[in-house]
């Protein structure tokens, strides 16, 4: 890619993010009451996903060799990652099975832009997404304040890197399963609700001291361990974690698998078409 082409692509991404921010802002200002209800319930939802484990860690002063602040840091990391997914990949970009299962991919296919560019920008919803970062942010701040821990710029750089890997892992897992909707639109339309819920539940489990079977399962079949536990073990230096490069490597592998699955599914879709269409959720 030449520099000119790269600059043009980046400019277009910027314009697309700006136009989607504006649409999101307009949606928010359409009804302030509705916005606040959305923002509050989304935030509660995000907080509720980790609340059980927070309470468990509080009741038992930590779990599996992790202290209470360490567990809360891990939960905060997971909740913040989820908030970022909401912020960047809303409008069923993350829950891609819905778009595919409802036959809505046609709308994206008739846009004169690469699919990656559409999916990278269409889900950006700063107005509705920002509040969902609050629970994760609050837990991170609280836990850092309660740990004897020095966080310098290098540490924050690693934090950002691991956060990026965590987000990539969540999206990859969603798309890997979501691609099944190409083959079974009705049965798999809501599969990303199930995978998202599962990831939400399982990412909160500290894997230190777990039986190898459970631990391996949560690092392979459902790679929830790479969303919060492995990055946090590396960031906090908790013994019993994985090699620090394993989380980024796993994210890269899962992203590759997800892209492969999506492209294979799309090739199938282009032969079989979609016999199903529902406008539900489309641009609403």
């Amino acid at each position: 890619m030449t520099v000119v082409k790269l600059r043009k692509t980046l400019r277009q991404i910027g314009r697309l993010l700006a136009v989607h921010s504006m649409l999101d802002l307009m949606l928010m200002t359409r009804s302030t009451a509705e916005f606040w209800i959305w923002a509050i319930t989304d935030t509660i939802m995000n907080a509720a996903a980790v609340a059980g484990m927070v309470m468990l860690a509080t009741r038992f002063h930590g779990i599996g060799g992790w202290s209470q602040p360490q567990i809360i840091f891990m939960l905060g990391f997971g909740a913040f990652s989820k908030g970022m997914v909401n912020l960047l990949f809303g409008y069923n970009v993350s829950a891609i099975s819905r778009r595919i299962g409802r036959g809505q991919l046609d709308h994206t296919l008739i846009q004169p832009q690469p699919l990656w560019m559409a999916f990278l920008t269409e889900g950006f919803n700063p107005a509705f997404g920002l509040p969902t970062l609050v629970p994760g942010g609050a837990l991170l701040v609280w836990s850092l304040a309660h740990m004897q821990f020095h966080s310098g710029p290098a540490w924050w750089l690693r934090f950002v890197g691991y956060m990026f890997c965590s987000i990539a892992m969540v999206i990859a897992f969603q798309w890997l399963w979501g691609s099944t909707a190409f083959y079974a639109p009705r049965a798999a339309e809501e599969i990303n609700s199930a995978t998202s819920e599962l990831m939400e539940d399982l990412k909160t489990f500290p894997l230190s001291g777990r039986s190898p079977a459970v631990r391996d399962m949560l690092l392979t079949a459902v790679p929830a361990g790479f969303v919060a536990w492995a990055p946090c073990a590396a960031l906090l230096g908790v013994p019993g974690g994985l090699h620090p490069m394993l989380a980024p490597a796993a994210s890269a592998i899962f992203c590759g698998l997800a892209l492969l699955a999506f492209h294979r599914g799309l090739a199938y879709y282009q032969i079989s078409g979609s016999q199903r269409y529902s406008d539900f959720g489309h641009r609403r």
Partner: peptide, 9 residues
């Protein structure tokens, strides 16, 4: 049978 319009905009 389909719309390209943004429904809530």
């Amino acid at each position: 049978q389909r719309s390209e319009l943004w429904f809530d905009q």
